[in-house]
Structure formats: C-alpha cells, structure tokens
Design a binder for these strands. Structure first.
Lengths: 194, 194
DNA sequence: GGGTAAAGTGGGCATGCGCCCACTATGGTG
DNA sequence: CACCATAGTGGGCGCATGCCCACTTTACCC
C-alpha cells in the first residue's frame, strides 16, 4: 500500500526547497531545476508530483496560505489587548518579515502566475485576499471595541496597511536588525492610518 | 553628419513599443524580440542602440521618470487650492492609471531588473524614489500651509500612500469606468491617512 | 523472497531567450 | 557621383527553461 505520507513528504520538501530558493535568490531564480536541485533530488521528481511547474507554484502558494489562518485567529484574539499599532505591527512584520514575504514576492513578481491563479481561483489572488481578510477581521474586532477612530471601512484600511507595509519592506531582505527599524516605521504608519 | 535626432527617434520608438507591450501583455511578455517586433524593426536594432537588453530596460525606466518631474511641479503648485484628497487622488490616479503603471509594474515584477537598477543607481530604485519625492514634496507644501493634521512625517506618509494605491490598482488595467470607482476608494484612503 | 507498483533518475527534446556578426540599405559629404 | 560612416537586417550561436520518457531503485504485500 502506498502510504501517501511519503508522497506528501516529497511535496512538502519541494515546497520548502522552493521557499529557500525564493528567500535566498529571489523570485526570478525560482525555476523548476533550482527547486529540485535545492531539494537534492532529480529534476523529474517535480513533474511526477505536479502536472505542471505552474501547478506546483499555484499549489505552493495555496499551501502557504493555510498558515495564515492560524495567524489570523491569534491576531483576532489579541483585539482589545495591547495597542493597535503593536498588534498590527507584529502581524504585518510576521507577514512580511518571514516566510510569507517570499510568497508575496513571488505572487507580486510573476504576472503570468497571477493570471494563472486568477483563472484557477476566480475569487481573486488568494494570498492577497487572505492577508487582507486577516487584517480586516482584526480591524473589525477592534472597531467593535471602539478602538478605531478612522471612519474609513476596514476593507479600505486593510489593503492600505498591507500596501504600505509591502512598500516599506520591498527588497529589504528582512534581516533582524533592519527589520526592527522597519517595524518602528510600520508602527508610525499604522498610528497615522487607524 | 549624423543628425543624432534619428538615433534619438529610434530609441524613443523602442521605448514606446516596450510601453505598448507592457500595457497590453504585461511585464513577463516584455522580451527584446517582443519590443523589436512591436516596433516593426529587426531584432538587431535594439542591440545597436543599447549595450544590453537590461540596459535598455534601465534606460526605459529612467526615461519615463523624467515625465514625473512636470507632474510633480504641477502638483506642488496646487498646494493650498482644492482639497488635499482631490489633489492627491488626481496625482496618484495619474501615476498609477497611466503610463507609469506599466513601468511600476515592470519594476515591481523583475527583481533582477531592480537589482540592476540599484547597482547602477546607488540611491535606490529611481522610479519609486521619484514618485515618493513627488508626493512628499506636495505633502510638505501642504504641511507648511497647516493643512495636514497627521503627525507622521512626509517621508513615511508618501510611501504609505503610494503603497496603498499600488495595492488598490494592482492588476486593474485602469479602464476609465473602473478607474473612477478606484479613485473614490483612493480618496477615502487619503482622507484616512492625512 | 519474489513480484509489483510506486518513486526516483537523468539524458535529451523543443522552445524561446539575449546576443553576435556578416551583410545590405541609406543618406549626407567632398 | 563616388565614398563611406551609420542604421537596419536576419541567420544562427549558446544557453536555460519546462517537459517527456525509458530506465533504475525502492519498498510494500502475499
């Protein structure tokens, strides 16, 4: 019996390899060969587990989106505690200063991939949608607590914050010391917006 | 005597062709062959006028940046007149809903091109720098008139606005009717920020 | 332990890229 | 008008990509 776990492992290892390549060398270096080489396996493996390289990328993005859900729940639980700016700065820094920055970078980079994702998922670009929803749900919780004074709706505020932070983080590799400086800027931005 | 004007024309025609390809087919379709085919000339022409295809792209970006200067001056002159939100919405809509959106898309897309631009221009990515400076100079003028209540400095506010609007405009081709709807959103965002 | 289905391997293909270069066409100059 | 520097042409190269496929290895079940 094929355990199915081994196959899942192979897929995950390819995902992890892709993530490392993405973080180390950037989106333009993310080729099928780079992924398999980084994973330490033959180039044919990728094609056995995925119909397409584009399908691989799409599933990679989808897989990583799942991780945002936990983060979103944790963030929503923090509503009412601490300061808004701190909570959002933590969430956005985690979003952009970690794994997700690589995926966001990938989705931002490749308009052809974006087009494919949109064909596959008619509701829009899933990562951006999810990230926006995550921030928006937190903002809604805070608003219900009367802690947001801005009169713009959360569906406007959320992309504003994400766009702003994306801009601030662009091409900063997210090395720890620099991230701290960026985090202060993020806090300033958030204070200005909400 | 080589007039020099003809050569300038050839370069400009290649720039224009690249812009059309960019707007029609997106950054991933912008190859040297696509540019020369769109321009209706042989593929060798590009290499005669530019040392490199990357050099061509870099000069394309630089060339288009020049157009921002006029826009920046016009915007600064509007300080004190009309509403902040309207002025900024006009500027940002013009920035993202026109030619520049293609170039911004290009620069956003190609991390390798970005790396090259940064090597050539140590001060940073020129387009982003210029666009930021354009908005920042306007905000400074408005602040001196006491029309900005936010306490964040303009160097923080400017990238915030650009990032936010970039996010809102992402992949919307900027067709007139939709642009108007986006413009209202932009105005809302600006009202929330400044 | 032999059989078999799955996973893994890597040579090789078609394609498209940027680039080189020998060649032709053009137009201003003495 | 002959000259020649310059602009324009397009065949073809080396390379890298994604993908196909015959082959080998692995590991599970009877």
């Amino acid at each position: 019996m094929p355990t199915g776990v081994a196959m899942r492992d192979a897929r995950d290892q390819l995902f992890d390899a892709a993530e490392r390549v993405l973080l180390r060398d950037g989106p333009s270096a993310l080729t099928s060969r780079a992924v398999t080489t980084e994973a330490g396996c033959a180039k044919g493996v990728l094609h056995r587990h995925f119909t397409d390289f584009d399908a691989f990328l799409a599933e990679l993005v989808r897989d990583r989106i799942g991780r945002l859900d936990d983060q979103a729940a944790a963030l929503r639980d923090r509503a009412g505690a601490g300061t808004l700016a701190d909570n959002l700065a933590d969430a956005l820094t985690a979003l952009f200063g970690s794994v997700a920055v690589a995926i966001v970078g990938l989705v931002t980079s490749r308009d052809d991939l974006r087009a494919r994702l949109r064909r596959t998922t008619p509701t829009g670009i899933p990562l951006v949608t999810e990230a926006t929803a995550m921030i928006a749900s937190y903002l809604t919780a805070e608003r219900e607590l009367g802690r947001i004074t801005a009169d713009a709706d959360v569906d406007t505020l959320a992309p504003t914050l994400i766009g702003a932070v994306h801009m601030l983080f662009a091409d900063r590799k997210g090395t720890p010391p620099e991230t701290e400086a960026v985090r202060r800027t993020v806090t300033t931005v958030i204070a200005a917006v909400v």
